[in-house]
């Protein structure tokens, strides 16, 4: 069980929290520790809008452990409105419902099967925008 790892990731996973550089305006996701040549004080935590569009996508037929019950399912590179490119599952659609450029929005969903005694893992997926 990797409870601590899942728990540490709840900001980006649940709220799509990334980082923004207060000097340059650069936004990055997922957040990461600042590098040696960066100034930690310049990077603030910011919740991203969850709006974006499909940059590219594919469909998984051979899923890793914990995702087997979901196959086939689409996975996409999503270009977020704030700039970063994020890899995520698509939901509420199949590959016929999306194409490059389709407007998508972030939703928080149950991510993977961890067994009857496992902690439930939630996080971001994207779906074609409802409105």
């Amino acid at each position: 069980m990797d409870i601590a790892k899942q728990w540490r990731g709840r900001g980006p996973r649940y709220r799509l929290e990334g980082q923004r550089n207060t000097q340059t305006g650069e936004v990055r996701f997922p957040p990461r520790p600042v590098a040696l040549d960066e100034n930690a004080a310049e990077w603030e935590t910011v919740a991203l809008s969850g709006k974006g569009e499909i940059y590219s996508y594919t469909t998984l037929h051979q899923a890793p452990s914990g995702f087997d019950g979901l196959t086939p399912y689409p996975v996409a590179l999503v270009r977020l409105a704030e700039g970063p490119l994020v890899t995520a599952q698509l939901t509420d659609c199949d590959e016929n419902d999306v194409q490059i450029g389709t407007a998508v929005e972030m939703v928080t969903r149950h991510l993977k099967d961890t067994g009857e005694d496992g902690v439930l893992i939630y996080g971001y997926k994207f779906r074609p925008a409802v409105q």
């Binding site: 019950g69 979901l70 939703v107 928080t108 969903r109 149950h110 439930l120 939630y122």
Partner: peptide, 13 residues
Amino acid sequence: PGPDEDTITMSIE
């Protein structure tokens, strides 16, 4: 509910 939905995810939306 879809296979990735439950009371928590629906409540959030």
